[in-house]
Write a protein that binds this DNA or RNA. Structure first.
Lengths: 222, 222, 222, 222
DNA sequence: GATGAATGAGTTTTCATTCAT
DNA sequence: TATGAATGAAAACTCATTCAT
C-alpha cells in the first residue's frame, strides 16, 4: 500500500471521528431531526421548516450551520458512506490474510454480523444514502471512490489469496464480490428493512446465509 | 388454484394490456416525459412544468389527464410493479413443475435472462418504482400484495416440488427465494444500473450466476 | 301613465314570458344546473365544468348557448329581478286605488302572501340575485331601475292616495315603503331562508305581520 | 345567568380585544387590504395576489400569517360576527330591566343609534360577513350560536319583562324580535348601504323608525 | 348543434433562503 | 449565536374559453 493511500485512509478515519465532536447541542438536534425527516419523506420532499420544528430551533438556525439544504444532506449522508465501508478500512482487515485457511467462513460471518448490526443501528441513515446517491453526483462519486479504492487495495488481494489456497473457486474476483455483496445485502435488507419483525436466531441466520453463499442451494445428488 | 385467484390474475393481465391501448398521442408523450423526468430527478424534485415542456404540451393538459402529480406517478409505477412479477403470473409458469428434474437450471436461466432483458428495457421505470415505493404507501401495498400472492400460490409450491425431487437443498422455501432473488437482483443491478458499459457475454454471465447460486463460491477441497 | 312607460312595461312582461319558451332541452338542463351550483357556491366559486357535469352536457355546450360564464349568470338573475317586482307591474295593481279604504289591509296581505309564495318557489334564484347584485353592476342597475320606476310610477301614488283617505299616517312615502319592505322582507327571510322548517299557520303569520306593520308592537297604555 | 355562560361571555370579550393587540404592522396592512378586496369582489373572486399588492407585502407573507385564504377570511369575518352582537353581551344590557317602563323607547333608540354607528364604521366588514355567511358553514354556525345564545339568555327575558309591564303587546317574543330586527336592519341598510348620500337628520330618523316600530304606519281613524 | 381535448393565464400555496434584530 | 418575519421564485393545480372533429 502506498503512502498516499494510507494518508487518504488516515484522513478519512479522522474525519469520521471529528464528526461527532465539536458540535453544539442544537447542531446535534438539527442533524437528528434532519435524519428523521429525510428518511421519512426523502430529501426533496422534506422541508427545512419541518426539520427546524422537530429540532426545536428556528428556521434560520439551520442555515447558520449549513449553507444550504443540500449541505445539510451531504453532511449527513457523506459520513455514512464512509462508515458503510469502514470495516474494510480498518487495519484489522489486513490481518485477514494471516488467518488459517479454514477460518474464511468465520471471517465472512464476522463481516455479515458486523454490517447487520451497523444496518440496524443506522437504518435511517442508510435509507437516506441509498435514496439520494442516484440524484446527488457528489455522493455517487464519493461512494464509487470508496468502493473502488477498497476493492482494489484490499478485497481483491484477499480473494486472490484465498483462491490460491483453494478456499474459493477460481472465478474472477469481481464475481466473488458481487455474489457476496448480493447475498449479504439481500439478507440485511430482508431482516432490517423489509421484515424487521420477523423473528429469527441471528447467529443461525448468519451461518445459513454464509453457507448458501459458499455452497449454494442445490441439493446433493445422491 | 381457486377460481378467485385465477380471476385476479386474468384481471391483472388484461389491465396491463389495456394500459397501452386507448391513449391519445399527447397522453403518451406526457407519460414518456414524466418517466424521463421522474427517473432523472426523483418524483418530489420533478416539476410538472418540466414534464409539460418535455412532452410539448401545456401544463394544464397534464392535469386534464391526471388529477394530481401523484396520480401521474401511480399510473406509471403501478403497472411496472405488475409487469415486474408478470412471468410468475403466466400460465407457462405452472408447467415448470412438469419439467424433468435436471432442467431446473434451465428454468432459472430462463427467468434470469427474461428479467435481465426486462430490466434493460425498463431501466427508468424500475428506477422510479424502486425509489418511490418506500414513500408511496399505495405502491408499497401493491408490490407487497403481488409478491405475497405469487410466492404463496406458485413459487413456494415449485420449491417444495423440487426439494422433494432432491434438486434443491432442504431449507425453508423463503430462504431459497431470498438467495435467488438476491443473486439475480445483484446481477441485474450490476449489469443494467451500475456498470451498463461493462462488456460481457450475456449467456455466460447468466450461466455463471446460476451456477454460483446453486453451488456457491467455495473451492473444492481437494 | 305615459305611453313610453307603458311600452317598457309591456316589453318587460313579454320578455319574461319568452323566457320559458323556445329553449332546447339541453339549455333548460344547463340553466337548472347553473341555478343549483350558483346558489350553492356563489357565482365566482362555481365552475362551468361542474355545471356541465350536473347538466349532463359537454363543457363546450354551455358556451354555445352563453358566450361567457357571466352571460349565463345574467340570463338567470336578470329575469328574477323583474319577476321580483312583477306584481307591481301588473295592470291589477292600478285597480288598488279603487278599493274601499278599509281594504288596505287585505291588499297588504295579498302582496305579502304572493311574495312569500314567490320566494318559496324561487329560493335559489333569489339567493343568487341577492348575492350577485352587489358585484354585478349590470344587475344592480337593472334592479335599481325597476325599483325606482315602480315606486315612482305606482307605489308612491298609492301611498299618497291612502294617506289622503287617512288610512296611512302622514309620513314621507319612502318611509312607508321602507317600513313595509322591511317587515315583509324580514318575515319572508325568516320563513323561507332562515327557518324553513319552522311550523306555522301561514294565514295567521301574514295577518300578524301586517298588523304589526300597521299598528306596531307597543302595548295599549291602559 | 350561569357561571358557564358568564365565562363564555368573558372569553369572547377578551378575544375581541386581543384581536387588535399583538399584530405586526404588516399583518394589519394585510387585514386592511383583505377587507377592501373581499368587500369589493367577494371572497371567491378576490385574489391573494391583489391583497398582497394592496397591502404592499409579498404574497408569501400572507401565508406566513394565515395558513390559507379562507383562514384569512375567517380571521376577519369571525370577530365581526361577535362585535355585531356585542351590545347585548355587555353587562349594561342587564340593567335595561331596571329602567322605568316609559324609557323603553329610549332604550330602543340607543340600540339603533349604536348599531347604526357600528354599521357605518364597519360597512365593509359587515358586507363581507353577510355575503360569506351562506357559503362558510363555520361562520354560519358561529352567527347562529351567538344569536341564539343572546336571544335565549337576554333579549327574551327583557321582552317578557316589558310585556308584563304592559309596554309591549302580548305577542310571542320571537315576533317582537323579528319585527324590531327587520325595522332596524331595514333602516340601517337603507342609510348605510343603499343610499349613503341621502341627507338626513340622524336623530329624527332614529326617532321615526322607533315610532313606526312601536305604533305602526296606520293612520289614526278620526 | 354538440363534443371534449387542449390551452394558458391565473390561482393558491410552498419553501429555501436572507437579514434586521 | 440565534431568531423568525419576510421574501419571491417556483410549485401544483384550476378553469373559462376555444376549436377541430
Amino acid at each position: 500500500m502506498t503512502d498516499e493511500k494510507e494518508q487518504w485512509l488516515v484522513d478519512l478515519l479522522r474525519r469520521l471521528e471529528d464528526d461527532d465532536g465539536k458540535k453544539t447541542e442544537k447542531q446535534i438536534r438539527i442533524i437528528e431531526a434532519a435524519v428523521e425527516v429525510f428518511s421519512e419523506k426523502g430529501f426533496a420532499a422534506a422541508s427545512t421548516s419541518e426539520i427546524a420544528q422537530r429540532a426545536g430551533v428556528a428556521e434560520g438556525t439551520i442555515f447558520r450551520h449549513y449553507k444550504t439544504k443540500k449541505d445539510l444532506l451531504l453532511s449527513i449522508a457523506g459520513p455514512v458512506a464512509a462508515k458503510l465501508f469502514a470495516p474494510f478500512l480498518m487495519r484489522d482487515f489486513a490481518r485477514l490474510l494471516e488467518l488459517p485457511y479454514d477460518r474464511v467462513e468465520d471471517f465472512l460471518r464476522a463481516i455479515l454480523r458486523d454490517r447487520l448490526e451497523f444496518a440496524r443501528k443506522n437504518m435511517k441513515l442508510i435509507k437516506i444514502l441509498v435514496h439520494e446517491v442516484p440524484f446527488q453526483p457528489e455522493l455517487l462519486a464519493q461512494v464509487k471512490e470508496l468502493f473502488t479504492h477498497i476493492v482494489v487495495t484490499r478485497v481483491e488481494k484477499a480473494i486472490l489469496h484465498f483462491q490460491a489456497q483453494g478456499v474459493l473457486k477460481e472465478i474472477p474476483p469481481w464475481r466473488v464480490i458481487r455474489s457476496t455483496v448480493s447475498q449479504f445485502v439481500g439478507m440485511i435488507v430482508f431482516h432490517v428493512f423489509l421484515a424487521p419483525d420477523f423473528p429469527f436466531d441471528e447467529e443461525e441466520e448468519i451461518e445459513r446465509t454464509v453457507d448458501i453463499l459458499l455452497h449454494g442451494i442445490a441439493g446433493r445428488p445422491s
